[in-house]
Amino acid sequence: MTEFTKPTPAMASARTANEPLPEAGRSAGTPHLGMTSRQAWVTMALAVLILIPSMYGFVGKFVEFVHIYRGASGGEFAIAPILNYLLASAGFFCMLLWAAWNGMFRDVERPKVEFLENERLLDRDVRT
């Protein structure tokens, strides 16, 4: 099997002269690979809006767990769905940590531009 490497930005920029740039970062005030301040605000606001109820849900689940051990009526069978959820969430939490550790969120807007450049490369070869 032939192994390929992902094109570097330098390779990606080897566009032919008549190919238009993707609109990535071309609108006024958009840094090429970063976010505009509006994007950053919306992202932050939604992150908070989501994180607060999520923490509430999370803590709620733990409270339920405690209830079970205190013998809340009919509590035992709730163990299956709650354990199920906690296990899945623990997995995702580890994945989130792993992703952050490996720099997946460092230049967070870069992948959206890179992917379109890669598509352009693949299609340019197809069409020529």
Partner: peptide, 24 residues
Amino acid sequence: LKRPIWSHGLSLVGFWGLAFFYPL
């Protein structure tokens, strides 16, 4: 559309939100 997604950061918020909330 020949243009990147409006905010990749926001799309990741959506993804992790789905990951943590949906199973509940």
